Amino acid sequence: MSRTSSDRSPDARGNRSCVICAPDSSTAADALLIAEALRERGHGRIIHRAGDGLAALEWLRAPVATRPDLIVLDLNTPRMNGWELLSELKADERLKVIPVVVLTTSAAPQDVTNAYQRHANAYVTKPANLADFEHAVRSIDEFFLNIASPVPRS
């Protein structure tokens, strides 16, 4: 898992953290766009990127990992797909309180339903247009990392 911010202490200055689970080269580019859009907001953001679902879960379950304030998840991840990761996250007592936003290319009604049945906090279909994509990411950031109150860290 890579870290795209040099700040190592998310709580020291009130920075909010986000995990982006993006698997392949096309969504890796999306992950970079997401990280850039979050940094442009001018708020302290610590972005962790996992290349696949299993890497994300391993990092989140590591004893030294600081619980993130948000997980942005693509459904098309190798080794452990997004559906499996979402189910694992919401079954884990420590991790189930983290909001999970599914950000994916699928607009299929069954995918939306399945995500909410697995307790996703939001389902966002990736816009094809870059400006619309950046707007969607900024809206996710605004709500989940600025407006909504996070679960207090213990």
Rank of each mutant, 00 (worst) to 15 (best):
A108W: 08
L130Q: 12
D69I: 02
D69V: 07
L54I: 04
A91Q: 14
A37T: 15
A65W: 01
I98V: 14
L75V: 05
C18E: 01
V112C: 05
A108N: 11
A107C: 10
I98W: 00
T125V: 13
R13M: 14
V72F: 03
P78T: 13
Y116M: 01
D141L: 08
I34S: 07
P127Y: 01
L89P: 07
A65D: 02
A122S: 15
V102S: 00
I98H: 05
E36G: 07
R118D: 04
G53D: 13
P23A: 13
A91N: 14
S5Y: 08
A55Q: 15
G51S: 12
S17I: 10
K90F: 05
D69Q: 08
D69E: 15
D7R: 11
L54E: 15
A115L: 02
N76L: 11
V102P: 02
S2G: 05
L32T: 06
A35Y: 05
A120G: 08
F133C: 07
N114Y: 01
G53A: 11
I46L: 09
A31V: 09
S5E: 09
H119L: 11
A35H: 14
I34T: 12
I71K: 01
R94P: 04
L38I: 07
I71G: 07
R41E: 15
E134H: 06
V102Q: 04
D24Y: 14
F144N: 00
R16V: 09
T104C: 07
M80A: 07
P109Q: 00
E40Q: 15
T4M: 15
L145E: 08
G82F: 12
S2D: 09
A31K: 11
Y123V: 06
A131M: 03
A131Y: 03
A22V: 04
V72R: 02
S9T: 04
L95W: 08
L57R: 10
R8K: 07
G44F: 04
V72D: 02
L145W: 06
A120S: 08
E58N: 05
A122D: 15
S26Y: 10
P68K: 00
L70G: 04
D7Q: 09
R13Q: 15
E36P: 02
A128H: 11
D111W: 02
S87A: 14
A31L: 10
R138P: 05
L86N: 06
S6K: 14
C18I: 14
A108D: 13
Q117P: 03
